[in-house]
């Protein structure tokens, strides 16, 4: 009974800590898998984990969450269909959060922070990767409070 109650709560609550439907790797399918690259203004990938404590995967999730939130506010139901302006705004907000985390660790992020998303395709027993620039954020230093969506 206790187990059934927790399962039901997890499936209904979906993502409301500690409730979670544990969707990790739940949809293998042929669609590309995505990874995140954070680079500086010269397109040099950054050691984002060493600087902020956040993994590139977490940065990617934060961006998608912010993009979906900004898109919803703009009346766009599917986050993936957000306009370049919305993506830019979402990345700026995430970059400012990352800057604050870096400041807490007494580290520094560059003034220009670029976000790129990589797609991995699995085709005929091998992989193909495509990395696409998404947005560019400008940081002022000191961990400014991000704009509310």
């Amino acid at each position: 009974m206790a187990m059934v109650a927790v399962i039901a709560a997890c499936l209904i609550g979906r993502d409301s800590y500690p409730l979670n439907n544990f969707p990790m790797y739940s949809d293998p399918g042929p669609q590309p898998s995505q990874f995140t690259v954070v680079a500086d203004g010269a397109d040099q990938p950054l050691d984002i984990r060493a600087i902020t404590g956040e993994t590139s995967a977490k940065v990617g999730k934060k961006y998608v969450d912010a993009r979906n939130t900004f898109a919803r506010v703009a009346g766009i139901r599917e986050g993936a269909k957000a306009t370049p302006e919305i993506k830019q705004k979402a990345w700026q907000a995430v970059a400012e959060r990352l800057e604050r985390l870096a400041v807490r660790r007494k580290k520094k992020l560059p003034a220009v922070l670029r976000l790129k998303i990589g797609d991995i395709y699995q085709e005929n027993g091998s992989f193909r990767e495509v990395i696409t620039p998404v947005a560019e954020a400008h940081l002022t230093g000191g961990g400014a409070k991000p704009a509310a969506p």
């Binding site: 790797y25 739940s26 293998p28 399918g29 042929p30 590309p32 898998s33 995505q34 990874f35 995140t36 690259v37 954070v38 990938p45 950054l46 050691d47 984002i48 984990r49 060493a50 993994t55 590139s56 995967a57 990589g118 991995i120 395709y121 699995q122 992989f127 990767e129």
Partner: peptide
Amino acid sequence: WLFESHYFAKSVQKVWRQLYYDNPSI
């Protein structure tokens, strides 16, 4: 899921990429 689980290979590769881009200098 079972029939599509062979696509899990790209998830393994994705994690590999994520680990690289966590700290690319090392």
